[in-house]
Computed example of a mutant assay.
Amino acid sequence: MKKQERATRTRTSLVLAAARNFDRHGYDGTSLAAVCGDAGISMGALTFHFRSKAALAAAVADEGVGELQRIRAACPHTGRPLHDLSALVLAVAGTLHSSVRARSAARLITEGHVASDWPAVWRGEVRGLVERAWKSGALTKEVRPGTATQLVQHLVEGVAIDARVTGGQRGPAPSDFPEVWRAALTGLAAGPGAGLADVP
């Protein structure tokens, strides 16, 4: 049992060290030697758990996407599209800011080193909420749902980039992001009567 626990701890340490390196340097800029050095674990132990850098990247992406999916699943479904959209955006942005695994997964997927359906699922959910808000008259008719969806994506991706640049400090999303999100949402809303009062 102790051997199994040690193996689990080693694997966890390697995935975390790899996530830090992939997040900072990307796939191509990360070496297995750097991951071993960061984790304080031998190359032999790394290759016992992961046969290649690609396998290690896939493990990091699986864990990061898992975090994002759990956050998404925990978001409320109140039937009020602006409220639900706001809760989803703030939760995903917060996770990307605070979790190096989630940020690393997003980078690996975006750069094409790991295949995942997460981007399509995330974009589809945002698009669905935006379209429902638009059809209900809660969003201004001057902005198409596709444009609003793209704006949401850029804002959330910006959180991950900002966290990467600032060293991915742990903690909640940057204090100004909810304000930035509120400003964007106010610009998308149809007006004062669009139901923003109860939006997070």
Rank of each mutant, 00 (worst) to 15 (best):
V60G: 14
V60D: 15
A61D: 10
A61G: 07
E63Y: 00
G64C: 01
G64I: 00
G64L: 00
V65H: 01
G66A: 08
E67L: 13
E67Q: 14
E67A: 13
Q69Y: 11
R70T: 12
R70E: 13
I71P: 05
I71T: 11
R72T: 13
R72E: 14
A73R: 06
A73G: 03
C75V: 04
C75I: 00
P76Q: 00
P76R: 03
H77T: 10
H77R: 08
G79L: 07
G79T: 03
G79K: 08
R80V: 09
R80M: 06
P81E: 04
P81M: 04
P81D: 00
L82G: 02
L82S: 01
L82D: 00
L82C: 00
L82R: 00
D84R: 06
D84P: 08
D84Q: 05
D84V: 07
L85F: 10
L85G: 06
S86K: 03
L88S: 14
L88T: 15
V89A: 13
V89E: 11
L90C: 10
A91V: 10
A91S: 15
V92Y: 06
A93M: 09
A93S: 13
A93V: 06
G94L: 04
G94E: 02
T95F: 08
T95E: 14
T95I: 10
L96Y: 09
L96A: 09
L96K: 09
H97I: 12
H97M: 08
S98T: 13
S98V: 12
S99H: 15
V100A: 14
V100C: 11
V100R: 10
R101V: 06
R101Y: 12
A102P: 02
R103K: 09
S104P: 05
S104L: 09
A105D: 05
A105P: 00
A105K: 02
A106W: 05
R107M: 04
I109Y: 01
I109S: 03
T110F: 01
T110S: 10
E111C: 00
E111R: 01
E111D: 13
G112E: 03
G112S: 04
H113V: 06
H113A: 09
V114H: 02
A115W: 04
S116E: 03
S116H: 01
D117C: 02
W118N: 00
P119C: 07
P119R: 04
A120P: 02
V121S: 07
V121P: 01
V121E: 07
W122L: 03
W122C: 00
W122R: 03
R123A: 04
R123F: 01
R123I: 09
R123N: 01
E125V: 13
E125S: 11
V126T: 11
V126S: 03
V126Q: 05
R127Y: 10
R127W: 09
G128P: 09
G128N: 14
V130F: 10
V130K: 06
A133E: 07
W134E: 02
W134P: 02
K135Q: 12
G137L: 10
G137P: 06
A138V: 05
A138C: 07
A138G: 06
L139F: 11
L139V: 14
L139S: 08
K141C: 10
K141Q: 15
E142I: 15
E142S: 15
V143A: 14
V143T: 15
R144F: 14
P145Y: 08
G146N: 06
G146R: 04
T147H: 07
T147P: 03
A148R: 10
A148P: 04
A148D: 08
T149W: 08
T149N: 13
